[in-house]
């Protein structure tokens, strides 16, 4: 079907997130306002005004009441999804790069960038049921990895935290003690910085995308490398279909390296791969710049992509898609 073009951002997209019901889509961009959209027709629900820098990441609570956003203005903010009011602001000493609610939405993991001599960090915050009781205290701070940590997510039962970043290593940390439990193998792992990390719906495995032009599928508990998907371009975004055994990789030439030649030169396509056989199934073209964000609707019948071009494209699959055989 023709994709729905959602033009609400003035700067490149950074992150996309569906709520659990799949009726809302939240988008973050380098302009300062995260935006909520209706996922079926692409109408705008509203914007969340208050950040003073690029917004890098967001997460929405299970009941779709809370939105957590992380921004380059050195804050992470909690919002009321419905009204768009700011509920709480977490202040940091450096830009926040990624946010993720734990199971039960009582915990959140927030990563901060290396900044002015400060090293990057993974911080765990408690999220109060009533925003009035919210405190900014970190229950746990993890440090160690070199360079930016581009993504950190919760493992099963909030027992572990999985992180990946510029040093191209995936790490599993104990979320109680802060101990480093596992590191991805140098040989098998990524060769260049990890740009994105996305969990499966049941949180048993996850996929990581890297600038080394590949994406890898890992077991969440053992950090066993299950699959590798190789492509021709640096991977900026990855997503897994909750319905079929498909994964989508998005990316393209680095924005600064995009030349004035044919837009095809950049390969700004969302590429579909068979999750099990690791073979390419097809691609969805359309963006005029690298794809920075990808998200699957939880029903698996549509997906959204956000690009350096500032557009969100909402794709509802044609019936043919569900009968692809390779």
């Amino acid at each position: 079907m023709r994709p729905i073009l959602m033009k609400g951002h003035e700067r490149p997209l950074t992150f996309l997130k569906y709520n659990r019901d799949g009726d809302l889509l939240f988008s973050c961009a380098k302009d300062h306002t995260p935006t909520g959209w209706f996922a079926d027709n692409g109408e705008r629900l509203g914007t969340y005004r208050g950040h003073n820098g690029a917004v890098w990441c967001c997460d929405v609570s299970r009941d779709s009441s809370l939105l957590l956003t992380g921004s380059a203005d050195q804050t992470a903010k909690l919002w009321n999804v419905k009204t768009g009011t700011q509920l709480y602001t977490f202040n940091f000493d450096s830009p926040t790069r990624s946010v993720d609610f734990g199971v039960g939405d009582k915990l959140a993991v927030i990563t901060t960038d290396p900044f002015m001599g400060l090293p990057s960090a993974i911080q765990v915050k408690r999220i109060a049921r009533d925003p009035a009781d919210q405190s900014g205290e970190s229950i746990l701070v993890l440090k160690g990895p070199q360079g930016r940590i581009n993504r950190a997510v919760w493992g099963p039962l909030n027992k572990t935290i999985i992180s990946g970043g510029e040093d191209s290593v995936i790490r599993i940390w104990d979320s109680e003690t802060g101990k480093l439990l596992k590191e991805s193998d140098k040989e098998a792992g990524h060769k260049k910085g990890i740009t994105s990390l996305s969990k499966s719906n049941d949180a048993t495995h996850f996929i990581s995308g890297s600038l080394d032009k590949s994406a890898k599928l890992w077991d969440m508990r053992t950090l066993t490398l299950l699959k590798t998907y190789t492509t021709e371009r640096p991977v900026n975004a990855v997503a897994m279909s909750p319905l079929l055994d498909h994964v989508v990789l998005g990316g393209g030439q680095d924005a600064s390296a995009v030349t004035t030649t044919d837009h095809r030169a950049g390969k700004f396509e969302a590429k579909f791969y068979d999750k099990v056989l690791q073979e390419e199934i097809g691609g969805v073209k359309g963006h005029f710049g690298p794809i920075n964000a990808l998200a699957f609707n939880p029903d698996g019948k549509s997906f959204a992509s956000g690009g350096e071009d500032g557009y969100v494209r909402l794709h509802h699959f044609d019936p043919d898609y569900f009968n692809i055989k390779i």
Partner: peptide, 27 residues
């Protein structure tokens, strides 16, 4: 490849089942 994948899936299902109660508690 498919068989291998099936094995993983079933293992995950089982773990998922085992952890079900704990997850409920968290929620």
């Amino acid at each position: 490849v498919k068989e291998e994948w099936e094995r993983w899936i079933s293992e995950w299902k089982q773990l998922q089942e085992e952890e079900k109660l704990e997850r409920q508690k968290l929620r």
